[in-house]
């Protein structure tokens, strides 16, 4: 779909106020970015699962999560991210993938989160069983917990062909010095950090370092767990949002993130099919220039 026709579709949606019915027809293939270490292309919008997929044993809620995943794959998404820390999310993902027949299409991204390197392999295997995949595409050390030992395990698994990529994670600006040290000293494929139009600490060192070292960047909490959108959602979008085809604040924020050249993908989490489509659509149109990004940040900061 051309930019013009996409804008027309967005205008139609905005005029009708029907974000809740974001149509699949409005979606082109989302932007894909290469994983620097391998060159493999990955869609720039992934799917997080913190809180949103932790629905326990509630059958209707689990089925609703599967529908979110169905819409995600239908819109061209691939990366789903989870962690053993996220309660029932892993089993919800595994059940959903089986239900919609997409276990072979997912870019399965999980974390190891346990004290003591010796307990890592058992946790990873348990996670794999819950997901129902042959192997993980990416396994990350969650919040750098016991990272020295876990990284050794992950590199061993990768060398043996039981894992495709290795990464580390943090959130909300924590332990950036240590993250930086790991990025400099270990051949990791991915780093996952928090980045959005208000939380921009990573722009100073982490993002430039990722570019320099050829490390893919996953952005978590793009909407501050929804708080950012709740805060600014009632305000009108600035007129310049139309220049990049952002029809909602969610798209405005995602486009800001994806336009950073170091960012590989963002992983917004949602419980709603219309939101997953809206998020994917953010990666299908034009992205802001560096100058416009500054304007976007200033605008949100001033709200």
């Amino acid at each position: 779909m051309s930019v013009v026709s996409r804008r027309a579709a967005l205008r139609t949606l905005a005029a009708g106020g029907v974000a809740a019915a974001w149509p699949m027809a409005a979606l082109a293939a989302p932007l894909a970015r290469p994983i620097p270490s391998t060159g493999e292309m990955i869609p720039a919008i992934g799917l997080g699962s913190w809180i949103t997929f932790n629905v326990g044993d509630d059958p209707p809620a689990r089925a609703a999560c599967a529908e979110v995943m169905r819409a995600f794959f239908a819109g061209g998404g691939r990366m789903i991210d989870s962690s053993p820390m996220y309660g029932s999310s892993q089993s919800v993902i595994g059940e959903g993938l089986a239900r919609i027949g997409r276990a072979g299409d997912v870019f399965a991204t999980d974390k190891v989160w346990v004290s003591g390197a010796g307990r890592g392999p058992a946790q990873i295997e348990r996670s794999r069983e819950l997901w129902g995949v042959d192997r993980f595409d990416l396994m990350q050390v969650h919040n750098l917990l016991s990272w020295e030992g876990h990284l050794a395990t992950l590199f061993e698994m990768k060398a043996a062909g039981r894992l495709r990529h290795v990464g580390i994670t943090t959130s909300e600006g924590r332990r950036h010095d240590e993250i930086e040290r790991v990025m400099r000293s270990h051949p990791i494929d991915f780093v996952q950090i928090t980045y959005n139009v208000l939380d921009r600490e990573v722009e100073r060192r982490i993002l430039p370092l990722a570019q320099e070292r050829g490390i893919a960047v996953i952005v978590n909490r793009p909407f501050r767990e929804g708080a950012l959108l709740r805060e600014i959602g009632a305000r009108a979008l600035p007129a310049f949002a139309a220049e990049i085809g952002a029809a909602s604040w969610a798209q405005f924020v995602l486009k800001f993130i994806l336009a950073h050249p170091a960012v590989t993908c963002a992983i917004p989490a949602t419980t709603r099919v219309d939101h997953v489509r809206e998020n994917l659509a953010a990666a299908a149109g034009p992205l802001p220039s560096a100058a416009l990004r500054r304007r976007m940040a200033d605008h949100v900061q001033a709200l």
Partner: peptide
């Protein structure tokens, strides 16, 4: 580490809807 950077909300790993539905 950096425990002072965590808020109560960081420990809430489910939505209110999921909790009440239990």
């Amino acid at each position: 580490s950096e425990w002072w950077t965590y808020s109560l909300a960081d420990f809430l790993m489910f939505s209110p809807r999921t909790y009440w539905r239990l």
